[in-house]
Design a protein around this nucleic acid. Structure first.
Lengths: 211, 211, 211, 211
DNA sequence: AATGAATGAGTCTTCATTCAT
DNA sequence: TATGAATGAAGACTCATTCAT
């Protein structure tokens, strides 16, 4: 009664096998995306890596683009969720340490999301669709920057930051610092100084800037 | 009878005609690179735009990659030179205004260099070669960051900045701010606030952070 | 428990359910054949339209070709039967009117059968099989042509046509006229004159030719 | 200075070699079109048959469709020209013989053009383009039918046909007869009588119909 | 017997690179 | 040395057919 199931998704009994293969394809694509630039990944590569025949892809996705998009979104969501799960609690530890923690988490997020997004610049249509998808939910980059602001306001309310401090630019300063570090990492720039080492003084400077 | 010279580079008598055609090809490629993503530019496009036959390219460059690389380097150098030419003089104006000027110049540089570099992430080998090339000379991003430091040290010497200020992180903070602005621009993110408008307060915060 | 019956043919209790599904598939295919060129109809289209799964087809037919063939034969038979049901009675009305009626009926038959057959020229093997099938019974085009002859002989016997008239070519003349009209219609040729309008004079000419 | 020439078109020195290969491709395609249904001819088949690599086609034609179209037009033109070259002179021989000659020529034209056109019904867009092309010039089917009328009027003027004869329907009658014969031939119908044998009586009937 | 997902050969098309002239 | 046509290896995608369930 039930049709054949793809060999590659033998396990996971009890689940919807169709959904399982769909998910498998996305997972595999996500994996490939981590290892090679999008443009160099062929539908065949994906099928091979998924242990599945060339055509299956089209049983689950409109297009190669649709599959890739799904994989990109999934990857971004995974990274963003990890980041949000590691955010500091206002009032805990010190503001400096928290911001550094913030920054470290962000570095993880950006450092991994950046290459993925950057490789997409080749394909503006896909890039646009990805952003539409990402901005739909609470994980967008804008939201991240906003969260830094929220955190600082909370600290302000707790009296750990001067009431008159202008909190607004910090999000961008922090984000910018991280992005630059991430880029440095990406381009394997033989930096004289490890990015992470610069983090402490930089955050300190920012904090001092707040008053 | 001397061998035929490509029609497209008739002029420039006295110069080495071979070098002239080589330069012409680079110029044309650089131009195309500004208008379309690298992946979508074919060798034929380049030849057409250069008013030259499909094959010449291979008389002057190992392959398409080598030509593109040359064009990218040239473009970067042009942008970087423009930036360095517009740097503020220590002691002139105010430090805040100078840093803002710095930032504006940097935004121009990054804003134009970024898409070019980003589109390259498709091709890690090429990217690597580009960086090798760029880092060889005095125009590298690292050097730019260093220049901010030099400028600030000069201002410190002139007494316009406190002697005990930690000048080191400013380069990265400034660079990061600019990069984030440039990225926002690239991704056409409908920012509530124009990047440029945020520049003043951000620089102010940084300066305050210096003490 | 008896094996499952395809959902799509739930009704028709008492009939052989297998035969019912077979017939259903043929009906559905016949319907699709009327709306789109054969080459653009996929087995999946057929299955979908029949409300049945992709694979059933192969339980009742050797392959796609066999199903399509069955559908084509059925369609032709339906058209031919309709045509034969509308034939004029010798002695009734006038010979001219009767031949025109003949022609109108034929135009209906050919006009609908032609596109179907023509689309088949893509697949000579199928075409051949179709003709084998059609010629097996009393509905073949030859037979149609013969019927015109029979009708005219009957009229001759009734004295409504001269005894010495050569009746033989009329079938072909009539058939040919109709076919040309049908083709003109198919190719949407912007004829100056409506085909139907030419029918009267043409038939008149033919009749005059009979003496 | 001149680029490589395709091996397949070695000869024809002095001609434009590019045009030669273009023509060669059309010729080859025309040939294939005669032997197999359009749908089953692949670009690779064409390339192989032309003794040329897979990609050349796209150096000379927008599309597979464009090449096929060119081949179809060429084939039709060739046939039509042959037909027009063999038309009878009014006043020569006898009217009956001339019409028979007309018919024989037409049979050649239709008999070869029909399969080609019919196979096109699969691809309405291509069919349309073909008709646009064909109707542009003096070789269209409409024109052919008109020529029969012209011929008969000329014979009327010469007094070899009664002045009161209604000449109009003859074009269609003749064309129709031929088309039916051609179709019979195409479908390899095991006719009891050879089509050609029926031609004489049929033409006689038509002529008698003229009075 | 029905299901419908998996299969994979085959299609058209692009484009960097070569090479006879 | 310039030319530009020829080359042919890929790539994305379709769809008739099979077959485990």
């Amino acid at each position: 009664m039930s049709p054949r199931r793809a060999k590659a998704v033998g396990g996971r009994v009890g689940d919807d096998p169709a959904a399982a293969l769909r998910a498998h394809l996305i997972d595999v694509t996500e994996g490939l995306l981590g290892g090679a630039p999008l443009a160099s990944i062929t539908t065949r590569d994906i099928a091979r890596a998924a242990g599945v025949s060339d055509g299956v892809l089209y049983n689950y996705f409109e297009d190669k683009t649709a599959l890739v998009l799904a994989a990109l979104v999934q990857r971004y969501r995974r990274l963003a969720r990890r980041f949000f799960a590691s955010l500091p609690e206002p009032g805990s530890s010190t503001v400096q340490a928290n911001l550094e923690g913030f920054a470290v988490g962000l570095l993880g997020l950006i450092g991994e999301a950046m290459p993925m997004v950057a490789g997409l610049l080749t394909d503006p249509a896909l890039l646009h669709r990805l952003f539409d998808e990402i901005h739909r939910d609470e994980l967008s980059p804008q939201y991240i920057q906003a969260r830094v602001g929220e955190y600082l306001l909370a600290e302000q309310r707790l009296g750990r930051l001067p009431a008159e401090a202008d909190v607004a630019p910090v999000g961008m300063l922090l984000m910018g610092t991280i992005v630059v570090m991430a880029l440095s990492g990406m381009f394997a720039i033989p930096a004289g100084v490890t990015p992470a080492a610069q983090l402490g003084p930089t955050v300190a400077t920012i904090l001092r800037g707040l008053g």
